[in-house]
C-alpha cells in the first residue's frame, strides 16, 4: 500500500504535460488579472489556390482585459479580420494559443460568450425587428414571455422601442445596424465582436452610432473587440488600439488611448485627439 502511494508521488509530476501546467498557470493568472482574452503567439497560415502558403498573421501576443474596448486597426490584408475570426472560433489558428476567459474559443462559443456584429446588419428580412432580436433566444429555448421581455429591453437599450414591429427593410442603415447590436447583446455575452460594423454607413450616421455604442458599452460593461480601418473611429472609441501591419499581418503597436470618458463628439476637436491620431498613423509599418 505504502509502496503504491510512493509510486504515485514519484510518477505523477513527470506524467503531467508541461503545456498543461502552463495552461493551469495562465488560468490562475486570468482570475487574478481580470484578463478576458489571452492571445499567445497566434499565427495563421493559409494554403492559397496555387499551392503556396500565405501568411495572414504572425505571432500575435496580447491580453485583453474584462470590460475593455479594443480596436483592431489596420489596412486591408493586415489580418485584423482574421484575428477576430480566430477569437470567434470561426477559423482555427495554425500556431499559438487562444484562451477566452480561461477556455478555448470553441468552448467559449458553445457557452455563448460572444455576440457578433457584422459589416452588414445581417438581419432576417422575414422577421420583424423584435423577432430578429428574439432569434438567439429562440435558439437557446428561452421561454416565450421572457424572450419577448428581454428582446424589448435590448431594443430599448439601442433606442428603437418604437420600431419593434417594423420589418428590417423599413429601417435606415443605421437603425438596422443598431438592431444588429441589440441582437448580439440578447444572449448577454461577455464579449462583443464587431467586424467593421459602421463602415457601410454615411459619416453622419456613423458619428451618431459611435456615441450610441459608447453609451451601450458603458451600460452593459461588455468587452468589445472592434475591427476597423478608420483611425479616427478607433481613437474615439477605444481604450487601446492594436495597430496591425500587412505583409505579413502582424501586431506592430499597441497604443493606449487615455482620453477621458465619457467621450462626446467635441473630443475630436482637442489637440490630444489629433496627437493620438497622428501617433497611430505613424505606427504603421510597410503600408
Amino acid at each position: 500500500m505504502i509502496f503504491i502511494v510512493l509510486f504515485c508521488f514519484i510518477s505523477f509530476p513527470e506524467q503531467r504535460n508541461i503545456n498543461e501546467l502552463k495552461g493551469t498557470i495562465s488560468m490562475i493568472e486570468h482570475e487574478r488579472n481580470d484578463i478576458e482574452i489571452m492571445l499567445d503567439n497566434v499565427g495563421m497560415v493559409y494554403d492559397s489556390a496555387d499551392g503556396k502558403e500565405v501568411t495572414a498573421l504572425t505571432s500575435v501576443t496580447m491580453d485583453i482585459h474584462k470590460g475593455e474596448f479594443i480596436s483592431l486597426l489596420g489596412p486591408s490584408g493586415c489580418g485584423k479580420t482574421t484575428l477576430l475570426r480566430i477569437i470567434a472560433d470561426l477559423i482555427h489558428p495554425t500556431s499559438g494559443n487562444v484562451l477566452i476567459g480561461g477556455v478555448s474559443p470553441k468552448d467559449a462559443r458553445l457557452k455563448r460568450r460572444y455576440g457578433m456584429v457584422f459589416q452588414s446588419a445581417t438581419l432576417y428580412d422575414w422577421r420583424t425587428v423584435i423577432k430578429n432580436i428574439e432569434l438567439p433566444l429562440e435558439i437557446t429555448h428561452c421561454p416565450k414571455k421572457e424572450r419577448h421581455e428581454r428582446a424589448m429591453k435590448m431594443l430599448d437599450l439601442v433606442g428603437l422601442s418604437d420600431f419593434a414591429d417594423h420589418y428590417p427593410r423599413q429601417l435606415s442603415g443605421g437603425m438596422q445596424q443598431r438592431v444588429g447590436i441589440a441582437r448580439a447583446l440578447a444572449l448577454q455575452p461577455e464579449i462583443l465582436l464587431m467586424d467593421e460594423p459602421f463602415s457601410a454607413l454615411d459619416e453622419f450616421t456613423r458619428e451618431k452610432l459611435h456615441v450610441d455604442l459608447l453609451k451601450i458599452w458603458r451600460k452593459t460593461n461588455k468587452t468589445i473587440i472592434f475591427v476597423t480601418h478608420n483611425i479616427q473611429e478607433s481613437v474615439f472609441l477605444s481604450d487601446r488600439i492594436c495597430v496591425l501591419s500587412p505583409h505579413p499581418g502582424r501586431l506592430s503597436a499597441i497604443i493606449d488611448v487615455d482620453l477621458p470618458r465619457p467621450r462626446t463628439m467635441d473630443i475630436k476637436d482637442t489637440p490630444e485627439f489629433t496627437a493620438l491620431v497622428s501617433k497611430v498613423r505613424n505606427s504603421f509599418e510597410g503600408v
Binding site: 470567434a88 472560433d89 470561426l90 462559443r109 458553445l110 455563448r112 460572444y114 455576440g115 457578433m116 457584422f118 452588414s120 445581417t122 432576417y124 438567439p136 435558439i139 437557446t140 444572449l187
Partner: peptide, 14 residues
Amino acid sequence: VQREKHELMYSYAA
C-alpha cells in the same frame, strides 16, 4: 443564404 447568417448561427451554437 449569406455567409454572415451561417456565422451568426454558428456563434449561437445552433
